[in-house]
Design a protein around this nucleic acid. Structure first.
Lengths: 301, 301
DNA sequence: CGATATTCATAACCAAAGACTATCAATCAA
DNA sequence: TTGATTGATAGTCTTTGGTTATGAATATCG
């Protein structure tokens, strides 16, 4: 026989109600069962906790000493379990999201805002990082989730597609641009604003130029998409950027054109560490991201 | 299904050993039983606590958060139960003893000293009070035990005799006193040092004089036995006091003589409240008192 | 790359703890 | 004194939790 939460609850109920019968009612159990609990508890600790006749039940000295301790134990247990169920039910928690810089600026703010509206107790950290760093952070546990474009088979990583993000041509808004899609061949001789080689987006652009049999030869190389758009707006060249960057170009004098032959796109995916169970909060955020991606975000591309 | 100490122990063991198998060994149970415990705990709180493959077991974020809380709960429970068993095994506790003044000064000091030598963790309060007050304090719970001379049938009071305490005649040590017993008749005309009417001992003296058909007519009335002995030593009179006062007369110029026709004695008893369970410490002290009374203290009378 | 051994999960079965009903004994109230 | 209320006890049964046997998965070693 080992002391049990049940014993503590029984003790507390009897102490507080001052009667076995009422305590048994409160605990939704029969009075003999409760008597047995108290009997076992007293035998286990070797101390009489209640002086009881058939008409009166009151704490002994030892019982009076034990009551606050038992109450505290039950309260602490309650609180600890409550803490866990709060996590389970997304009333509390923390999600660290690692995300490519462009998406971090154009997609995550809205995603986080809508998520927090539904789950006000959850805290979110946003880490913007390059693709390879995202994978590392997710694998190490530094980030719970990663959002970006990833290679097919990363070991220890589970991936789900969020949406397809097509490359578009960003040109200065001078004359009315033709509505038809541009081609890679057409822009081959235009001054090109490209991202640096560290960027995952640069690789996509190289893929497009690869169909022409030659690498991209940028007139400008910049680290951030915002900068690239600004250069285009200034009329210094054209840029090939994913549709996600549309939001950045929105109130600038930049025109977007489709870009074909071939159309190039990337898959924006959400990754988690496949070995690790995501926290409930991370699961909720991932679910939220998937829903929004197939809805509003998806339609935008 | 309700969360249980057992679940917390299982969780802690797995978390600390990092393996179900080793944890099961530590808990002296089979591995499947342990797996079931963890499974139930996780289902109850709705959160995965361990990420486990067949080769690796590690805490999830929620598990890492829960571990210190579980450890503290188990520690607190341990401590609280330890507190109770400490009481049960007389390693700790408190006894309030109410005692007649004479006995408090001649008998209790040694009784307490020998008791504390055996039970260093127990604290003792000594309340010296008149007989009727002793009964009240024991009945109300203010005192755990009472020691003194009591009426036969006090309601709510259980009494056990410790020893018999005979009245002796205390005379100034002048000429060598006769060895034979004195009689009440002989001292009828001596100047008498008596205790005040509040004292229980005074009633015994009155009982002795009662056999002569008259009340005591004290030359002096004092509140304390010590004072009475001092007056006798100064040659101002004789006193009739119980044998327990022998210790007070010990290194004073006072001679003790037996006092007969009739011999008068009182029973010194130990009382407890019959409705209330005595604390383990009080039980131990009572047992100690009974043993010592039938031994050293008893022989002294 | 395949065989082996280790580890956790599952299934089936069983023992024991614990709960319930019925009843007894004790105490308070009328 | 009698009736009503309350805690304890006895007997029966359900349920929980344990064990053994076995399966599935993964790391290790040849």
């Amino acid at each position: 026989m080992n002391i049990d939460i049940r014993h503590l609850r029984a003790f507390q109920a009897v102490a507080e109600t001052g009667a076995f019968r009422r305590a048994a009612e409160r605990l939704r159990m029969s009075q003999p069962a409760l008597s047995a609990q108290i009997r076992d508890l007293e035998r286990e600790v070797g101390v009489v906790l209640f002086d009881r006749t058939t008409r009166r039940v009151e704490l002994t000295g030892a019982g009076r000493e034990f009551l606050p301790q038992a109450a505290k134990l039950l309260g602490d247990l309650e609180a600890a379990l409550r803490g866990l169920t709060d996590l389970a039910q997304h009333r509390r928690g923390h999600v660290a999201v690692a995300c490519a810089p462009l998406l971090a600026s154009v997609m995550l703010p809205e995603l986080i805002a809508t998520f927090l509206a539904a789950h006000p107790g959850i805290r979110i950290s946003l880490i913007d990082a390059r693709t390879d760093q995202i994978v590392d952070k997710v694998r190490s546990g530094e980030a719970d989730l990663g959002i970006g474009t990833f290679a097919d088979a990363e070991p220890g990583i589970a991936r789900t597609r969020l949406f397809r993000d097509e490359l578009l041509l960003f040109v200065p808004r001078r004359a009315p641009a033709p509505r038809r899609a541009a081609t890679w061949a057409e822009i081959a001789d235009e001054p090109l604003v490209a991202l640096t080689r560290e960027s995952g987006l640069r690789a996509l652009v190289e893929m497009g130029f690869g169909t022409l049999g030659r690498p991209a030869r940028p007139a400008y190389e910049v680290a951030q998409v915002t900068t690239a758009v600004a250069l285009v707006e200034a009329g210094l060249g054209v840029a090939v950027l994913p549709a996600a960057a549309r939001a950045i170009a929105h109130d600038r004098r930049v025109t977007l054109r489709a870009l074909g032959q071939p159309r190039v796109a990337r898959d924006v995916s959400l990754i988690v560490a496949s070995g690790r169970s995501p926290t409930p909060a991370a699961q909720a955020f991932a679910a939220h991201a998937r829903v929004r991606a197939s809805g509003a975000l998806g339609r935008r591309t």
